[in-house]
Each structure stands twice: as structure tokens, then as C-alpha cells.
Simulated scan of single mutants.
Amino acid sequence: MAKDDYHVIVYYLLSYLYDCLKKGRPVDKSIIRLEAYPEEIDPDYYRYILEHLLKDGLIEGVSIHEVPILGQRNASQLRGLDNMRITPAGIAYLQENSFMKKAYETLKALKDIMPFI
């Protein structure tokens, strides 16, 4: 699996959020934001992933707002990244999904750049 694969990014986010929840730490926006990733990831792709994690009930605490752009279709903007939390469904997805296990193996090799793993 590539580092920019959907399941790798989802594993990274959910495992970070779960770690914060278990340790009672606030979410660090710099880790949640796109610049935390070691490789270039398209911002629309990353926003798509976050929106679907929210819509699928795997994360909570953030909201999606449509931002009108003159002459273009509306763009969405995520708000409240520092309030983001993993849900019980997100924890179950993280622990039970076979793709998450593959993503874990991919990220295990990258643990030096992801200190919470």
C-alpha cells in the first residue's frame, strides 16, 4: 500500500485520534492538517477522506460548511479540526477492518515520522 492510499491515511487519522482519546490529550491541529503528511497529498482528496469519515460516523466534532465561490460550484470547508474525536464506530473500524491491518503494516515502517505509533 502506498503512503497516500485511502486506507493508510484513514488509519493514520483514526489511530492518532484514538491515541488522544485514550491518553486524554487534546488533538493537535498540526497533526490533523494536511501538512503533517510526509508526501504531497492532494487537498481535495484529503478533504474527501475527512468528509467521508464524518459522514460515515467514524469521527465527530467537526462540521462541513459549503463555501460559495463566484462562478464555480460550492467548495466545502471543514471546521473545528481541534475538536475532532474518534467515535466508537471509528474505534471498531480501526480494529476490525482488514485494510486497517494492511495500513498498519505500511505505517509501521514509517514510525520514525509518526511518533504516536
Rank of each mutant, 00 (worst) to 15 (best):
P115S: 10
L58K: 00
D44K: 12
I64E: 02
L50W: 07
G61N: 02
I49K: 01
Y6D: 15
F116Y: 00
L13H: 07
P68M: 02
R79N: 05
Y6G: 13
A103S: 08
E40S: 12
N97T: 02
H52W: 10
L94G: 02
E66M: 04
R79L: 14
A75Q: 15
H7F: 09
Q77Y: 12
R33H: 07
M114E: 13
I49N: 00
N83H: 06
D28G: 04
S63E: 06
Y45D: 04
P43I: 06
A103R: 05
D44M: 12
I86G: 04
R85Y: 02
I9R: 05
E66W: 06
M114F: 15
P43M: 03
L34Y: 09
E105A: 12
K101H: 15
P26G: 13
E40A: 11
Y93G: 03
Y18H: 15
Y48N: 03
S30I: 09
Q95P: 07
S98Q: 13
P68R: 05
L81E: 06
A103D: 01
E39P: 01
I86Q: 03
F116D: 04
E105P: 05
I86T: 00
K102R: 13
Q72C: 07
S76K: 12
L17E: 09
I64F: 03
D112L: 14
H7R: 06
L53I: 07
S76M: 10
E96C: 11
R85F: 00
P26C: 05
Q77V: 10
R85I: 00
E35T: 09
I64W: 05
K101A: 14
L81H: 02
N83Q: 15
L94F: 01
L21R: 09
M100G: 06
A75D: 13
Y46N: 08
S76G: 10
L54K: 07
L50F: 06
V62N: 00
Y16K: 00
R73A: 14
I69W: 05
M114Y: 15
